[in-house]
């Protein structure tokens, strides 16, 4: 056999062939694409020069708010007014008031001036203002992994996390977890605190995040669901091949 024959033999046999990849390979292609997309997205973010004054302003407002809250919380008659409390009636629809997710934490803890029926109504509205975003996250049922993932998604300065409580009546004493949650920094701790606290069954704690953070979470969810779909498809392909 001449050397040209060898070349021809291999060329004829191996030039145009096909080999079936393992079903998992597609999932890895998708994972690579997602990873590359995320890297590109991070690169595309323009680097902004850090300005000191917004932080200073935010810090001073926060200090003032915490101070006010502390002083009011120390008065026993005012303590329950701090709660974002409503009756068991369903909250008013969110369309009544526009939702401003970017509103700062400070604004959510304004103390009502009087404690009467109108207070409950206004608190109901306050709760209703949050309700548009409530559907997304109910920390009470947040598993550890999701809480951690959420923590990673929320940069420190974006953590304007607000916890609102819907209690059966204003007379319900302020539970320990709520005092703590007023300045919530760690979602998983919030969940733990909530679970450990003995609260009435129909009290719920919900977390609000700034609009950009919510958008990012939703994007991540979409990507994740696409990825899961691809995994499922790979799995079903594998099953069908095995059954053949």
């Amino acid at each position: 056999m001449s050397s040209q024959d060898v070349d021809k033999l291999f060329r004829d046999a191996l030039d145009q062939g096909q080999a079936t990849p393992r079903p998992e390979a597609w999932a890895r292609v998708v994972a690579n694409l997602l990873e590359a997309e995320q890297k590109a997205h991070q690169k595309a973010k323009p680097k902004r020069r850090t300005l000191w004054w917004p932080y200073a302003a935010a810090a001073s407002v926060a200090i003032a708010a915490v101070g006010t809250w502390w002083m009011q919380a120390s008065r026993p008659e005012a303590a329950s007014n701090q709660l974002l409390v409503s009756s068991n009636q369903p909250p008013a629809t969110s369309s009544q008031l526009p939702v401003t997710s970017n509103q700062s934490l400070v604004a959510r803890y304004e103390k009502p001036e009087t404690r009467d029926q109108s207070l409950v109504t206004s608190n109901q509205q306050l709760v209703a203002r949050y309700s548009k975003d409530f559907a997304l996250f109910d920390v009470a049922f947040l598993p550890r992994m999701e809480a951690d993932a959420l923590e990673e998604l929320v940069p420190l300065l974006d953590r304007q996390v607000v916890v609102a409580v819907q209690a059966p009546a204003p007379e319900v004493p302020r539970p320990k977890y709520l005092q703590w949650a007023a300045n919530v920094q760690n979602l998983w701790s919030a969940v733990q605190e909530y679970r450990e606290a003995e609260v009435p069954a129909n009290v719920s704690v919900e977390v609000h995040l700034p609009a950009p953070v919510l958008r990012r979470i939703n994007q991540t969810k979409t990507l994740a669901s696409n990825f899961n779909q691809s995994l499922n498809q790979s799995w079903s392909t594998l099953q069908s091949r095995r059954s053949r």
């Binding site: 145009q16 062939g17 080999a19 990849p21 691809s230």
Partner: peptide, 14 residues
């Protein structure tokens, strides 16, 4: 995209 992959990946793997 999946269909395109299914059609072309076997040649590439080979």
């Amino acid at each position: 995209q999946r269909a395109l992959y299914e059609a072309l990946a076997p040649r590439v793997l080979y």
